Simulated assay, not measured.
Amino acid sequence: MTEFSEAERAYLKSQRLGRLATVDPQGQPQANPVGFFPQDDGTILVGGYAMGRTKKWRNLRKNPKVALVVDDIASVRPWRVRGIDIRGEAELLTGPHDLGPHFSEEVIRIHPRRIHSWGLEDDKG
């Protein structure tokens, strides 16, 4: 499994929303905004209100390839964007977890295989 740098880990912990891309059975991409939770083991959990009934869950049952993009605008003047693109394999989990009471028992665990980040080297904490 690919590992996050310290800057990438810090950035992920500072953000709340990302876009998760999956592929449907016809090979078409689908992207959705999702909440995500970086884990100490280097994986990322994605939870939702009724995750097991979503199209992304159904897509991942057929094809576990996934991408998660987290980015933001750090500054407008000067223009400075930063972010991280995580590609990997999704593991579908069902059962108790610690994400909170508003999440369904279905959770997606992303195992990163490729990580590309930009604009994080300028962060000063």
Rank of each mutant, 00 (worst) to 15 (best):
N32C: 08
P29A: 10
L20A: 02
M1E: 11
T43A: 14
H116A: 09
I84W: 10
L45G: 01
T43K: 07
E3K: 08
I73N: 10
Y49E: 13
P25I: 05
E121G: 02
G100C: 07
K124R: 15
F36T: 01
E3N: 08
A50D: 15
L60Q: 06
P25N: 09
N32P: 00
K56W: 04
F4Y: 11
Q15K: 14
W118P: 03
R61N: 08
L120P: 02
F103N: 08
I84A: 13
V69W: 04
E91V: 13
V107L: 11
A67I: 00
K13L: 13
G95S: 07
V76E: 13
S75T: 02
L68S: 09
G48L: 09
E3M: 07
L45I: 00
L93R: 14
D41C: 10
Q39G: 03
G47Q: 08
V107A: 12
F103L: 03
P78M: 02
D72A: 08
D40R: 14
D98V: 00
A50V: 12
R80V: 01
E6C: 00
I110Q: 12
K62W: 01
R80M: 12
G95P: 03
H102V: 06
H111C: 02
R61V: 01
R61P: 00
Q28G: 05
R61L: 15
P112M: 06
N63W: 01
E105I: 05
I44Q: 03
N32L: 11
P25Y: 11
R80A: 15
I108M: 12
R77E: 14
A21K: 02
A21M: 05
K55Y: 08
Y49D: 11
